[in-house]
Design a protein around this nucleic acid. Structure first.
Lengths: 344, 344
DNA sequence: TTGTATGCGTTATCAG
DNA sequence: CTGATAACGCATACAA
């Protein structure tokens, strides 16, 4: 019996041929059964019994080499911080409901790893690729697109590529938040910016600057300190900001990780929020509601982002292919809490 | 040319045969080149040029049907909360360094989804499966094991299965933490327990009870309230605890999510930590260091867990197969902070 | 509806 | 080291 064959310790399972033999039907019939087509009742029962007896499991790889469909979606992210983890959770669930799963790769900001990941996805023939855009990948992603692999960028865009996009209104959200700080009387507002190679970093910074300008406040370049999206970057940037001759009265962090770094420095150095300084951040997290008087934050519509991605995915994977690329931009909520207060 | 053929909108890329033809060598030679075997220099150059010109990409699925190796590791979790997200990050990175990637599935606690996931992994022929154990899966996982798919449980165990395990000392960590609370003078200590279907939930509770008993404190069942690992469960459980005739003076949460729920209820109801009540939690998170006077927590060695899993994975995937299953138990750190104080 | 036969892209065997 | 060719497990066009 095939079932008990062993080759170098790796056992090969029963195949569709074994099932056909045991059920006494043709392989084509078994294949059609497996794909949900209508089968004569008696045959179906025999096939089901054979599958049961043999412990048969369809080999998706073998099928995919014929159909060019793997039912796997590539998911490429720089890290699994709070934002990406939530994205993954929602995306994994909504994608699962379409019968697919995510092949995840975490590149940690290393361009070589990004290239490696893209090669891996190409070799695995993922049906589509969802990724947080990063500048250096233009050529390699373009290559995938030419190989007919649909790409969906989220969070960060890469301009000029024939890909779908699901973004949030970074500029506008920053603008609104900073405007609120100005309303509260702040004029020296510091910002912990993300990596300027990321479109979201650029847009969040631009929104900040525009809000200042529109209210007649000159933009002081020393008030926008470059972070790295991470806690340590936020810590260092805050330190620099607070070491200025005339330090800011409010700080806006471009993401959660850097906000934690800021809180860390402020705490270590005895600065109290919001009495000594106001603080606001992109990305809303459960704990922000509870932290002291609450942290004012920009809430990204993570669930909507994931749903939209899945919708586009399904469309791309079922429609006759082709069709213009879509670019969806979702709104964010500004959640006002106690960490931002009126200045006297 | 093959390259420009289109079938129903899906383009088929160049194959190894095309490469062989263009490079004027045999397919076997190309295959050997792709697999890093030694090739005559002139041939190698011709092959490389052909691959470049054709934009050839190896089809991993086709290879896997011969080799029975997909280079994919299944990763099955209930949620992507803080703990699992960190696990994923570390695991994705260490697994990547072995040339593999993770096929992730999130079941949200639904047994049907778990079954679905297991079927999916089996069909995809993942090289191995890493999962957070959950009681109801015994039979289906056993089935996978009989199909020679190595299983590695982490976080939660399922007894009696021929699988590898990487766990932490849940019992001992709880025990130590509760002992500390007793040292501080607490005798009525509440616990927000996890789901009793999870081994970690059982062990953390058992450690709590044992610590009490060893110090001569009678275990009051009403003080251990069942949560669900999530924030809402922690909120409700805390509410119940604090509505007791004689409420606890300290609360221990079995994970981060429920601790946030507890903080939420306490804040809403004007109870201050640690003045009105002490609080400690399993799972250490960056913000715990900063939250008010700091939250006392059990820090799981997430990086070590991921590394250990990867080591076992590599071993299972390279060794002649067979060999006794391994069961690794890692230690946790108890991080004492301001949220637990001496009671008068 | 069913059976047959061919093809999918690789790897592996074995003779050169 | 290379070439030719038989698997691998499944889907599908075609004829019945």
């Amino acid at each position: 019996m095939r079932q008990t064959d062993r080759t170098a310790g790796k056992r090969r399972g029963a195949t569709i041929i074994d099932v056909a033999r045991v059920a006494d039907v043709a392989v084509g019939t078994v294949s059609r059964y497996l794909n949900g087509e209508t089968i004569r009742r008696s045959n179906r029962e025999q096939i089901e019994r054979a599958i049961q007896d043999l412990g048969y499991r369809r080999n998706a790889a073998a099928a995919s080499i014929r159909t060019d469909l793997t039912h796997m979606i590539g998911f490429l992210v720089p890290t699994f911080d709070e934002f990406h983890a939530r994205m993954l959770e929602y995306l994994a669930i909504s994608v699962r409901q379409t019968g697919r799963a995510l092949l995840t790769y975490c590149h940690g900001g290393d361009p070589r790893v990004v290239a490696e990941a893209l090669d891996f996805f190409a070799a695995q023939r993922v049906d589509a690729l969802v990724m947080d855009g990063t500048a250096e990948v233009y050529d390699r992603v373009d290559d995938l697109i030419h190989h007919d692999i649909p790409i969906i960028f989220y969070n960060n865009d890469v301009r000029g590529l024939a890909a779908d996009r699901v973004m949030v209104e970074n500029h506008r959200a920053s603008y609104r938040l900073i405007s609120h700080l100005i309303d509260l009387g702040h004029t020296r507002i510091g910002m912990l910016t993300g990596d300027p190679r990321n479109s979201s970093g650029i847009e969040r910074l631009a929104g900040y600057e525009q809000a200042l300008r529109d209210r007649g406040i000159v933009v002081d370049a020393s008030l926008a300190v470059r972070g790295n999206w991470r806690m340590d970057g936020g810590y260092e940037a805050t330190k620099r900001l607070m070491s200025l001759e005339s330090p800011p009265t409010a700080i806006f962090s471009a993401n959660y990780g850097m906000a934690v770094g800021a809180l860390s420095w402020l705490k270590e150095n005895g600065r109290h929020v919001p009495d000594d300084i106001s603080l606001a951040s992109f990305d809303d997290v459960a704990i922000f509601r509870l932290y002291e008087a609450g942290i004012t934050a920009v809430a990204q519509p993570v669930a909507s982002i994931a749903e939209t991605i899945t919708d586009i995915l399904v469309e791309r994977l079922t429609e006759p292919s082709g069709g213009a690329t879509r670019s969806v931009v979702l709104e964010c909520d500004i959640i006002l809490r106690g960490s931002t207060r009126r200045i006297t």
